[in-house]
Design a protein around this nucleic acid. Sequence first.
DNA 1: AACCAGGGGTACC
DNA 2: GGTACCCATGGT
Length: 288
Amino acid sequence: MTEITIPNFDIALTADSGQCFRFNRTGERDYQLIAHGRVLTVRDLGEGRYLLGCEQGEFEALWRHYFDLETDYAAILSGLPADDAFLQAAARYAGGLRILRQDPWETLIGFIISQRKNLASIKSCMAAISRRFGAPIPGTDAYAFPTPGQLAAATLDELNACALGYRSRYIQQTARLIADGALDLAALDGLPDAAMRAALVTLPGVGVKIADCVMLFGYHRTRAFPHDVWINRVVEREYGGQTPAENLGPYAGVIQQYMFCYARGPAYRPAPDASQANARRGSGNPLA
DNA sequence: AACCAGGGGTACC
DNA sequence: GGTACCCATGGT
């Protein structure tokens, strides 16, 4: 057990932020994270104090970096444009978010699954895949996320049994490309953003939106600004259809998460007229 | 260029 | 107990 203090960290918001699919609330104050082939339990003690179910050495070696504790989020928050009322409100609501430093491979598969699914469904699929194809984590009832080789060996029937729908084919094909070495995910780390995105979208089931999510959450490319339906609504309602991403600087992706979680959460009440206009327009992409 | 595949969890009514 | 909707992509 290790007790740590993290100022301005909202673990409930982060676990449910949609960036990580193996981070769950298990009780009033308790959370379980599966990453690095391990299970980490976290108890929220309040006032920025957290009790981690690991030794100090493991925290320093793995989790300090995973939770991006080296990054000064207070500086990002204080650097937000003061005249942007929506962004200021989003930062007040979601300023406790951190961009976790997740594994690119797991992030890639997670976001291929994410298309046209809600968060609970994505988490359920990721758990099913891990249980069926991943290695059991000793001393727990949890399973590590499968390696590219393990997923590449899966049959379509087995993948379909994980409720992946039409994504089964994408995942099988992508897993084979990674397992065969046709695309080296580790090698992408050295590429500039545009080249990394171009490489990612060559994978089946990966378009620009998914690639941007993998860049932001799997490679910590904080300029990446994924345009999902929630952000598109925000851009339509709050920014007149003009995406603010270009003006948001090196932490645009962090700001995207503030906007995303705020827009999706209960605190955000868009202007009635704009909201109804969008609702009437239906399910289409407002920017399309 | 519109339209649809396939399906599951959940918030709504 | 329906119904709509969800961090889209690729093929027709």
